[in-house]
Computed example of a mutant assay.
Amino acid sequence: MPHRLPAALALSVALVLSGCSDDPEPKVAPEPSALNSPATASPSGHASGLGPEGVVRAWVEARNEALEEGNTTAVRKLSSPSCKTCEDLLRPIKTVHAEGGEFDTPGWRVAGTNIKREGRGQIEIDTALIYASGSTTPSAGAEPVRYGEEKHIAVFRLVRADEIWLVDFIGYLS
């Protein structure tokens, strides 16, 4: 799979950025420099006041913080209770930290977003993600597993709950 990933990624990025679909011309928003700073959530941990794309960026930032500390509370507050894919992405973080392991990576970076579908209380956003290179030590005393940078296109589906957007699904297009 790693050998096919660059070609698939290049095609996916080209399709997302060029807007090859039956949908109207997509508007991919590269990450503005002001959004390169860490996203912030309200004192309650929720992303009140953030639009859907801001919530995606806040979710990624909170996940990156969880990699460092093992505490997934902030990222879970940005996830709907029914988000099984969120849990699938967060469970390994908790497991590695519980086993005395660690992550040595800055994590993910949002390279761009593209709102695909909006409906009553729901929105889908195609998101270009860059996974930074690094290593994972799966448990205390284990040898680190090293990995290189990867690029992916993910779909974040958000739902509106109590006047805030929450991540309800994360799936991969590449």
Rank of each mutant, 00 (worst) to 15 (best):
D104C: 01
G119L: 04
I93C: 07
S82C: 06
H152S: 09
Y172N: 11
L67M: 08
T136A: 00
P106T: 15
T137V: 10
P92D: 11
I153R: 12
D126G: 09
N71M: 04
H97M: 01
P138A: 00
F169S: 13
P138Y: 00
G107P: 02
I115W: 01
P52A: 15
W108I: 13
P106V: 12
T127G: 02
K77A: 12
K94G: 12
N114L: 08
I170P: 00
A47R: 03
D168V: 01
R160F: 11
R117T: 10
S133Q: 15
R63E: 12
G119N: 07
E65L: 13
Q122H: 10
G100S: 13
E118V: 12
L158V: 03
I123Q: 09
D162Y: 03
E87N: 12
L166E: 05
I93Y: 01
R160W: 10
S82R: 12
L67H: 03
I170T: 04
H46D: 14
T136C: 07
V110F: 05
L173N: 14
W108N: 13
E149R: 15
F169Q: 15
R76Y: 06
T73A: 14
H97G: 03
I153V: 12
E53K: 11
G121M: 06
E65F: 08
R117I: 06
G51N: 10
A58K: 00
C86Y: 07
G100V: 04
E69Q: 07
T72E: 08
T72L: 02
G112H: 08
T72Q: 07
F103K: 00
R76Q: 13
V155I: 14
G112N: 09
T85M: 00
F169M: 08
A98V: 08
S139F: 07
E102K: 08
L173S: 14
A74E: 03
S80D: 10
G49H: 02
W59G: 07
Y172S: 07
V60M: 03
G70D: 02
S174L: 03
L166N: 11
T137Y: 07
G49T: 11
S79G: 00
G54C: 08
E118H: 05
K77G: 06
Y147E: 12
